[in-house]
Nucleic acid binder design. Structure first.
Lengths: 149, 149
DNA sequence: AACTTGCCATTAACATGTTAAGTAAAGGAT
DNA sequence: ATCCTTTACTTAACATGTTAATGGCAAGTT
């Protein structure tokens, strides 16, 4: 009965995305656990290493985190000595976040393993498929918002 | 410097998967919020509607949830009167979870809107691309585990 | 200047993610 | 029957996801 009207979870895009993400993140999480940082903390550090000093709003945007989560993460990273924070010189509402030498070192220490995991993925899954997948995902993300039309 | 060694987050599969998921889930979350259930609770209810009575372990597997999360969710759903639980007749370790009439009603009430969102996605993104994306994601999920080789 | 509006970041409250440990029951071996 | 291992589920502890409300500050309006 319900089997005819309720779509199979197999063809559900949200769940498919979730499972794929789990597949990819599992090994990365394991690697990061050894160093004592979470996946999200790692994302923040990488963004800071990529772009240099940023304010929290831009970090949130680039690392795909919501501000409340980021607030807690920045506190944690500060405690761990991986970032520093200072108030914006002309706008006291804002902050400037910078990765420390220790933070860069942490990234450097794990970059090789991170790249090895990426290489494994490209080989196992196929470079062509991986690129095709990334293109599709980016296209999806670029879709016009708001399906209430 | 770091720009040469640290891969851009744009081409990071984990982040691309995350952003794509956000794009798809946003509207669905909004719909479910009106009914007072979360995305995960919705997944559990759908699995139960699809497959009938199941034990928690199989629910966790099919709805892509970890057991600790599922334990809390099943408690919530029981409180809300959307599911019932009973101990397995021959194996007292196990349980049997069944969706209630109220649970089925909740699904029925939201099915149309859910399908409308799916239709919007197919139109906006393209049916061919959507299918290609789902195929790629399923292939990825089917990859051999364990990249420590 | 007083008011208003908007923005940045934080906090609060609740739900889930994640890993590890704990509890109870089932199954097999001695 | 006793012991050991495994299985199914729960709890605990900490981190994040998510929405709403709050506080501090900036900028425009009157």
């Amino acid at each position: 009965m319900t089997r005819d009207t309720v779509p199979e979870t197999n063809r559900s895009l949200p769940i498919a995305l979730l499972r794929a993400r789990e597949k990819v993140m599992g090994p990365i999480r394991a690697m990061l656990a050894d160093v004592g940082v979470t996946e999200q903390q790692w994302r923040v550090l990488r963004v800071l290493a990529e772009r240099g000093t940023l304010d929290p709003t831009e970090i949130a945007d680039r690392s795909c985190l919501l501000m409340p989560s980021l607030t807690r993460i920045l506190q944690t990273l500060t405690t761990k000595g991986l970032i520093t924070r200072e108030v914006h010189p002309t706008d006291k509402r804002r902050q400037l976040v910078t990765i420390t030498a220790a933070g860069r070192q942490l990234i450097a220490d794990n970059l090789k393993e991170s790249q090895r995991l990426n290489a494994w993925l490209r080989e196992s899954f196929g470079a062509d498929k991986l690129d095709a997948l990334l293109d599709l995902l980016n296209e999806l993300d670029a879709l016009d918002r708001d399906p209430r039309g």
